[in-house]
Design a protein around this nucleic acid. Sequence first.
DNA 1: CCGACCTGCCAAACCGATTTACCGGGTCGC
DNA 2: GCGACCCGGTAAATCGGTTTGGCAGGTCGG
Lengths: 343, 343
Amino acid sequence: MSERASIRDVAVRAGVSPTTVSHVLNNTPGTRTSEKTRARVHAAAAELGYSANAVARALRTRRSDSVGFVGDEIATTPFAGKLILGAQEVVRQHDGVLLVTNTSYDAELENREIRELLSRDIDGVLYAAMYHRVVTVPASLHAAPVVVLNARTNDDRSWVSPDEYAGGEDAAQVLIDAGHRRLAMIGNADPIPAASGRPAGFLARAAAAGIPSEDVTVVYVSPTAGHAAEAAMRLLDRPDRPTGLFCFNDLMAMGAYNSARRLGLRIPDDLSVVGFDDLAILSAAVDPALTTVALPHLEMGAWAAEQLYVEIAARATGQPSPVRHAELRGEVVHRASVGSPPR
Amino acid sequence: MSERASIRDVAVRAGVSPTTVSHVLNNTPGTRTSEKTRARVHAAAAELGYSANAVARALRTRRSDSVGFVGDEIATTPFAGKLILGAQEVVRQHDGVLLVTNTSYDAELENREIRELLSRDIDGVLYAAMYHRVVTVPASLHAAPVVVLNARTNDDRSWVSPDEYAGGEDAAQVLIDAGHRRLAMIGNADPIPAASGRPAGFLARAAAAGIPSEDVTVVYVSPTAGHAAEAAMRLLDRPDRPTGLFCFNDLMAMGAYNSARRLGLRIPDDLSVVGFDDLAILSAAVDPALTTVALPHLEMGAWAAEQLYVEIAARATGQPSPVRHAELRGEVVHRASVGSPPR
DNA sequence: CCGACCTGCCAAACCGATTTACCGGGTCGC
DNA sequence: GCGACCCGGTAAATCGGTTTGGCAGGTCGG
């Protein structure tokens, strides 16, 4: 273990001082070193398999090349993994490392974790929510660069969230493209951004396609498969039923699937269904596989990490943090639940 | 940012030396300090909101209170989150922090990530697989404490994996308890531990319950919903069909669901189905909700972290690492896909 | 020929903790 | 009354890097 080479070892082997080794290996701007010496240093470092001790460096430079990822729940959705992965790819390019913590919606725990991160001189934090909502960044983070991920905030901080409106538009477009002219949406009655954005986009696109407003229905229910099933039952159990149905999320689409089955409606022959979220495990496994609007988790994670590095760099040069916001559009994943309208 | 109090600030305020502050705050064994002084130090630390800089401490002690979590894929399954969460709870109790990395089954990337972790003086690493298999710990980790998580290894290292045999037993028991006497299993033809363990336990328990061997069938197919559906078709499309069906995993159970539906068999009235994995999103959403054997991810994560800390402590005192192995039993999650056998 | 300036390199300070080694002063035993 | 020992505490070294502030020696312009 302890046989790791230090900068002194490299210096001795190259016949120079540690200062020079540091300058050469870091390409420190404003320093000069002859080509010959540079070569000797590089050779010595390579022979010893030297790589700088990140802890020592962090102590001196007050920069640890590590960023914290504080999430509210990491265990129950596959979303967390995608957010983390997207962020990680960017962090890796910066030779950094991700410190992941989970707060379980527990404010006290969150503060303890944040202290723990701060005591490690992290360069910044990604403050992530597992579903799109409005968060407030804890006061303990006031001094650190922070980007809010998969959420928005009223604090003066950068954030990135899904473009819910565009998602609603895209869902409508899928149905319209398939030829549907009688549409419905089972929405979410909760007061969260997605619950208003998705139907707004859906309605707008339907209107833009010239579908009369009496031919597109939106109902709002509690976001469970059970409530969605009831809503679908009411929506579908009549002769002039919609032929294209957009559900607030994939889980609710499963409720619609069940109701359709009970009513003897085949998907996609009698009814086309579009979901939201792209819970891949679920939507690819059911029969028929569910066409759905994916959430751009990978992209959001990457965007947030990029932005965080921008803010970290700004702070390093003493400039104010450039606050930015983004709403990213998800892609439609075409599977088998959408077809032409009946007859 | 830079207004964080240092140990010197505390020392000045308490009118003592940094040495004493360190002794008091860490309760360093073998040192003596008067009650009065201790009180002053604690008061000063509290007033300044002091907490030690973890980077400086790590540099001096060569112990960073951080452990690496290196996983092969973190984005595609909800398993990763549970493994991480289980580990994290233990790590947190040790005032540590988890550095999460993802290798995407890419050996070169893996080595880069490991170097990155090692350069940060991590205390040990959790080497995690997302599905139970046999792994070999990369050579670059030879000097560090390592516990293999959700996998086993032939290297001389600790590991923890699911008890596949017990899972197979439990699945059989669920069906037997419900009264079934004609059983089948759709197994996995891949050469992985789960593929042999689960059927072995299943068969053993069926035999123990006195079910004649000609009444329990096991077939092995490629682990996809499609292949499982075909297998289910063959298994179920005859009069003496089994009434209780165990599927290698939840995804394959979905295939069986589809075939049952095609054959006009109702679940659980005509056919009872037990899955494996407890992909909660999936199994709770389908109709009927799937009874399944859960994988003990949380518990494995916690076990691995505990064991890692044992090995870290051993190393600190110069003892050899106590290598241990564990196979943890998952719990049966009872939902709605198991009922009494028909008639 | 002198001073200014450049080149190439290094010694020492520093980051913030822990750990080692030691030091006054009081107590105790004899 | 003297050495041994305990008590409560501190100064300085240390971990492994980076950064600051120079310092020889050579070159160049005037």
